[in-house]
Design a protein around this nucleic acid. Structure first.
Length: 260
DNA sequence: TCAGTTGTTTATAT
DNA sequence: AATATAAACAACTG
């Protein structure tokens, strides 16, 4: 489920358990998730290094050590968990970082993304180059200016990592629904009041989601009902609309989110 | 068998 | 240059 809130949760897993731990070895169960590095290189270069303070940028987790940094992306089905030493491997555990006091399990069924190793700060920058500002820390002024620069529909604009980093399909639908903005509206057609409202709802949805470590599937949220066959708007009860916008399934309320 | 899925990149066309 | 669409990656589920 990895969007910004999920990855923020994975960052906390590392921050809480892995920091200061010494990497003894790296078990690669499926090298299909390694990008630009072999299993042997990954193990050799990380051996004996200790995890440092992790960071998140957009949907990327940057697990720094006192040597190289491990860059993880979780695609659509990835996750990260801290387990005790000698924990059994789960079915889709692809890489396990074994430390002196526990293990970090990188799991991913679909392997759409993967793990990179950055030898230095330049390598990290190269991977993150081109991403827009992080959705959790962007200011309202910059956020508004981003929107005025694109005439594309607001939905794919917000989900474009090069414009703004961190929002995925579920979050964008949730935020637009909260802000009562139709997903097909051109981004640069929003007036200043709408841009401000959108920013505030983004903050709110992100704050609540980060607290949960995921986009909550509460019945009062669009995300909580969007999977149902005859889903209705949690706010007004109108049957929800469903369509493809920007190549992704999009759910919105035709009553609350009128086309302009 | 077919369509769909929380992500991203690439090719192609407009 | 910006935008739109489809396909590809992989492994499921209904």
């Amino acid at each position: 489920m990895p969007e910004l809130p999920d990855v923020e949760g994975f960052r906390e897993v590392v921050a809480r358990h892995a920091v200061g731990r010494r990497i003894e070895r790296v078990d690669v169960a499926d090298a299909g998730v390694l990008r630009g590095v072999t299993a042997r290189q990954l193990g050799d270069r990380l051996h004996s290094h200790r995890f440092g303070k992790p960071e998140r940028y957009g949907k990327w987790l940057i697990a720094r050590t006192d040597g190289p940094a491990v860059l993880m992306h979780f695609g659509m089905t990835g996750s990260l968990a801290w387990l005790g030493s000698g924990a059994p491997r789960a079915r889709y555990d692809r890489v396990v970082f074994v430390t002196d006091a526990g293990e970090l399990h990188y799991s991913d069924m679909r392997k759409l993304q993967g793990i990179r190793l950055a030898q230095g700060p330049d390598d990290v920058d190269r991977v993150l180059a081109g991403l827009g500002p992080d959705a959790l820390t962007v200011g309202s002024g910059e956020f508004g200016r981003l929107l005025t620069r694109h005439r594309r529909a607001i939905k794919p604009t917000l989900a474009d990592q090069h414009v703004l980093a961190g929002l995925g399909n579920l979050l964008v639908d949730e935020i637009l629904w909260r802000a009562r903005i139709n997903p097909r509206r051109p981004a640069n057609s929003l007036d200043p009041g709408e841009r401000d409202g959108l920013y505030r709802q983004m903050r709110r949805v992100l704050r609540d989601s980060v607290r949960q470590g995921r986009v909550p599937a509460k019945p009062s949220w669009l995300t909580g009902v969007r999977g149902q066959p005859e889903a209705r708007c949690p706010r007004c009860g109108t049957p929800l609309s469903r369509g493809r916008i920007g190549g992704r399934t999009t759910v919105w309320c035709p009553n609350c989110q009128r086309a302009a």
